[in-house]
Design a protein around this nucleic acid. Structure first.
Lengths: 225, 225
DNA sequence: AGAATGCTTCGACTAACATCGAATGATGCG
DNA sequence: CGCATCATTCGATGTTAGTCGAAGCATTCT
């Protein structure tokens, strides 16, 4: 009767609202302390701690002890991919948010999805990449004929990105716009560049990406043509 | 505090063992009646029915009424993708199965994963495709230079497969072997061919794919070179 | 129409688990 | 060395939700 991996076990881990909030808070790829996660989840410290041991047991989180702080982070990209997949079906299913608040506005515009850019800006960029054949999206996603030259011109060497086992290009379904944006190591490299060029800053403890006015212009000029 | 889609809601749906078993049973892409699902989940009929309404509320299942039978099936590929993703992390996490029984042996050898072939045979095929550059797997997966000719020779027209929004090639992490095999519409087309040629049969109510002796030879000659 | 089958609803029971207060470890600072 | 902070463990409480038996609907077959 029971065959295959124990999917119920780990799904139930994500199934608790407090734990789900923690995982979502870690989707920016950063590491948070137990207290920060407790705050994020909206529960007390003991409760949070109990949840954290459960998540550790399930190998969904990894921890780094640093002095009297313990920094928790997602265990790896597999976990992030799973959460993205769940978000994908959750976006289509759940009761839609009544009225999106101002914070949600920023989130929809530009946010971080584990290690790459998401939101309206990311979708616009994705669309432009497809239009210019910088990437091809015939169901799967891969580098297009105009891709290597384009990225080389802005200082991203695509020949190195395929090295690891990680997909260079991957489509990630955006829960706010219900359209695709670019994930994978290339998506991560782009976000790296945006931050390195100081076009945008990332307020601590949030997934929001705040573009500076000149940064937005530079972003549009570079990626939206 | 709560931002993004309600991932906890749908994760908790998968988090119950009975419901998880139902979903796994439907991962072959088929449709089952409520009683069959009750049997599969190991619960009584009323319990199963209650679970089914929950899964329907979460849009994870779709139903087709046919006479006095109600056939339940996964709502779509998004749901299947999500379950695959969960299986991926569950395979690495959970307590490994003590000693795999004979049924597990068949499952490891060849089984159906929603609509494509999985298991050792599928992994071997995937490896050979990569070696012959029929597909390329530099992280992402796509058709290789030798691909179109190869598939045309065995009656699969790859130019048609990219039409839909669905990925033609996709790597699917195999929970039994911890290696990749081929998913996507191309993977589905291959399984279709195997069944159409009667190289293998699929016992009802199981994900196992049983090759006939001549069928296995034909499969190896065709796909393993 | 009457009987049989498949499925759902209702009601009550039980068990699991999330939650918090208080106490105990662990680490760093003055 | 104590004090303060961060984190975990323990014990007790309350709520949630999975479970089944029995009854109610719907559909099909004779």
């Amino acid at each position: 009767m029971k065959e295959g991996p124990d999917i119920a076990r780990i799904a139930s881990l994500v199934g608790d609202p407090a734990r789900a909030n923690m995982l979502m808070a870690l989707m920016d790829g950063g590491a948070l302390t137990a207290s920060e996660l407790a705050l994020e989840a909206g529960v007390g410290l003991p409760t949070a701690s109990s949840h954290l041991v459960k998540l550790m047991d399930g190998r969904l989180l990894k921890v780094a002890s640093q002095g009297r702080h313990r920094y928790y982070a997602l265990a790896g990209t597999e976990v992030a991919t799973m959460i993205e997949a769940i978000s994908g079906v959750a976006a289509g299913s759940g009761p839609q948010r009544a009225r999106p608040g101002p914070r949600d506005k920023s989130m929809r515009e530009a946010r971080v999805c584990y290690d790459h850019l998401a939101g309206e800006h990311a979708v616009a960029m994705f669309d432009r990449f497809v239009a210019e054949e910088i990437i091809v999206h015939d169901g799967e996603v891969r580098l297009g004929p105009a891709g290597p030259a384009f990225f080389a011109a802005i200082g991203i060497d695509t020949s190195n990105l395929g090295a690891s086992r990680r997909p260079m290009c991957r489509a990630c379904l955006d829960w706010s716009v219900r359209r695709s944006h670019l994930a994978g190591s290339l998506g991560a490299a782009i976000l790296d560049k945006i931050v390195a060029e100081k076009w945008a800053r990332r307020p601590a403890g949030s997934r929001v990406v705040e573009f500076t006015p000149p940064g937005r212009k530079a972003f549009e000029r570079t990626f939206l043509g």
